[in-house]
Simulated scan of single mutants.
Amino acid sequence: MTEKVYNVLFLCTGNAVRSIMAEALVTTMGNGRFRGFSAGSRPAGSVDPLALEQIAPTGYPLDRLRSKSWDEFAAPGAPQMDFIFTVCDDAAGESCPFWPGHPITAHWSVEDPAVVQGTEEHRRAAYHQAFHQIRARMSIFVALPLHMLEKNAIHQELAAIGRAA
């Protein structure tokens, strides 16, 4: 019997940094159990180069990453999502499209490193911090025994991860 592969969608407003990082991390850390996707309510149109710098060491194919609208995932024929996470506070407050299949949702607030001003070193440190925070949460998420948990228990666990430091 083949183990289910869970589709996970990460949402942010611009889909250029945090949701992109999360897409790559869930796929690379999930050992084949998770397939990551990302989208935005108002996509920036390109992926932030400093985000790509953080993702590159994971081995995720950078050419697969693109900034896109969340409407792509609400359209007929789109992959059905098992989980949907918002990673920015703005997207969490927006009216999302209807997601087929009633995926489990949670909010994992991550500060936007793209708004950090200052030296290049200071900006890179902010991107590293956001990447580290997402990676820490992802480590917990991909280790959950999903096949053993009820939908309510999964929802409670995911909400708790979003409150973690």
Score class of each variant (00 low, 15 high):
3 E>I: 14
4 K>V: 13
7 N>R: 05
10 F>I: 02
10 F>L: 01
12 C>F: 03
14 G>W: 03
16 A>Y: 00
16 A>C: 12
18 R>Y: 05
18 R>I: 04
19 S>W: 01
21 M>I: 06
24 A>W: 00
28 T>N: 04
30 G>P: 06
35 R>H: 10
37 F>P: 00
42 R>C: 10
42 R>E: 12
44 A>N: 06
51 A>K: 00
54 Q>A: 14
55 I>F: 04
55 I>W: 00
57 P>W: 06
57 P>K: 06
59 G>R: 04
60 Y>W: 13
61 P>K: 03
65 L>A: 06
68 K>C: 06
71 D>S: 11
71 D>K: 08
72 E>W: 11
72 E>N: 14
72 E>R: 11
76 P>C: 10
76 P>M: 15
77 G>N: 13
78 A>P: 03
78 A>M: 04
79 P>G: 06
84 I>S: 02
85 F>Q: 00
85 F>L: 11
87 V>K: 00
87 V>I: 11
88 C>A: 07
89 D>V: 10
91 A>M: 05
94 E>C: 06
94 E>M: 08
95 S>H: 11
96 C>T: 15
97 P>K: 02
99 W>P: 04
100 P>Q: 12
101 G>A: 15
102 H>V: 09
102 H>S: 12
103 P>N: 13
104 I>W: 02
108 W>L: 04
108 W>Y: 05
108 W>T: 03
109 S>D: 07
110 V>I: 15
110 V>W: 01
111 E>C: 11
112 D>K: 09
117 Q>G: 08
117 Q>I: 09
119 T>W: 08
121 E>I: 09
121 E>K: 08
122 H>K: 13
126 A>V: 06
128 H>M: 15
128 H>S: 15
131 F>T: 01
131 F>N: 01
133 Q>F: 07
137 R>V: 03
138 M>S: 02
145 P>F: 14
145 P>C: 14
145 P>Y: 15
145 P>N: 14
147 H>E: 15
148 M>H: 10
148 M>Y: 10
149 L>R: 06
149 L>Q: 05
150 E>F: 07
151 K>M: 08
152 N>L: 12
155 H>D: 08
155 H>T: 10
158 L>Y: 11
160 A>Q: 09
